[in-house]
């Protein structure tokens, strides 16, 4: 069962604002989902290899060639805020 603090913690990790007054509803929904998921946790999977991909293949490699050209004006056409070719964001603190 997720606590209110769990919800606050994952909301912050996911960078999604959940207002205090909305916490209880989100907590309720998430716990419903984890109730559904619970069934899977009890399965004995000793010795089973995790399946990360739907295909059992290995990575194909690209030749090391420059194939992309400058399209920054096209790419920045939909940007929220740009100046001098840079994307602008609220001040970054190191």
């Amino acid at each position: 069962m997720l606590s209110r603090d769990d919800v606050r913690r994952i909301a912050e990790l996911a960078r999604i604002e959940v207002p205090e007054e909305g916490l209880a509803a989100v907590q309720h929904d998430l716990n419903g989902i984890f109730g559904l998921v619970e069934r899977m946790r009890a399965v004995d999977t000793a010795g089973v290899e995790p399946m990360a991909h739907a295909v059992d293949l290995t990575q194909r490699l690209r030749e090391d060639k420059v194939t992309d050209t400058d399209q920054h004006e096209l790419f920045q056409a939909c940007a929220p805020q740009v100046e001098d070719g840079l994307y602008l964001v609220p001040k970054v603190i190191e």
Binding site: Q81, E83, L86, Y87, L88, V89, P90, K91, V92
Partner: peptide, 14 residues
């Protein structure tokens, strides 16, 4: 991230 002043914002060069 470029921290020169862009009206109090940072510029991002990728």
């Amino acid at each position: 991230s470029l921290h020169e002043d862009f009206h109090g914002m940072s510029g991002i060069d990728l």
